[in-house]
Amino acid sequence: MATRNDTAAPPVKGGAAPGRPPEDAAVEKERRRRDRLSRRWQRDIRWSPYAFVSPFFLLFVAFGLFPLIYTGWASLHQVELTAPTDMNWVGLRNYTRIFDDDFFWNAAKNTLTIGIISTVPQLLMAMGIAHILNYKLRASTFFRVAMLAPYATSIAAASLVFVLLFGRDYGMINWALDTVGIDAVDWQNDTWASQIAVSSIIIWRWTGYNALIYLAAMQAIPHDLYESAALDGANRWQQFIHVTLPALRPTILFTCVVSTIGASQVFGEPLLFDANKGTSGGAEHQFQTLGLYLYEQGWVAQHLGRASAIAWTMFLILIVIGIVNYVISRRLRASS
């Protein structure tokens, strides 16, 4: 409202004598115009931020939030794939059914082990590679781009190649093991071997990417920190432990969260790794993940309701993991 007075001020400044109607009208008109503009201006300032962020939120509600909530609703119904719009209320029966299913627990266990054996070595290696990339190097751009090539490779292509590389009889890896005197490993049917093989696809695709993320964080560490640590007599390893790692803590946490979420969703790799082209993750379900189990229940057994219950269970697990993560990071921050 202050603007209204402001805009009215200029004519007075001219010091013109009062009582000249035509000019007054013009002033009045000008004042109104400015008023209108200023009101539009204010409206613009006030509402345009919401207009700018609304497309994202509208899409998120339509294709993220609503489906997520609706999954919970569908999980309380019997829904068949062939008639996805017919829903019969069954209460918690979908949940009791999957909790009674050994293959659910098997898939949960496999997801956990594949998650661990794919994430932990991946992030450790990424950290090492990032540390090396942080040296002054020739051709550093080449190395960075080259290690991102697996990231450019799709899950589908990568998985199909790894099936061949991990072939029991003619695969490259067993051949290499043979040359150093190790017996052929059955990468398809052995539980541990198959899970390692599936994890290796994930490790291969994501290590370079995570290395770049760590590298970016390392480059943001101020050099004086290293210099004062060195003056205090810290050797390079101690510098890494006491300067680099603490400075990287938020980034490490970030990659852990992202990898955890990714690991809970593993689907394409075990689907395509199965040489028998099934959906059960190997003949004995030895590398079936929760994502694959969800697909098998929903699209092969055609129980969308049960698949929804699996999805919602995964969501609850993720929330628990998220809370644990949050608490741990809180603790770490408090202790430092």
């Binding site: 489906p67 999954t71 689907f267 999805a311 969501f315 993720l318």
Partner: peptide, 8 residues
């Protein structure tokens, strides 16, 4: 993760 929304 988007995978949780695929059914609806």
């Amino acid at each position: 993760p988007p995978q949780l929304s695929v059914i609806p």
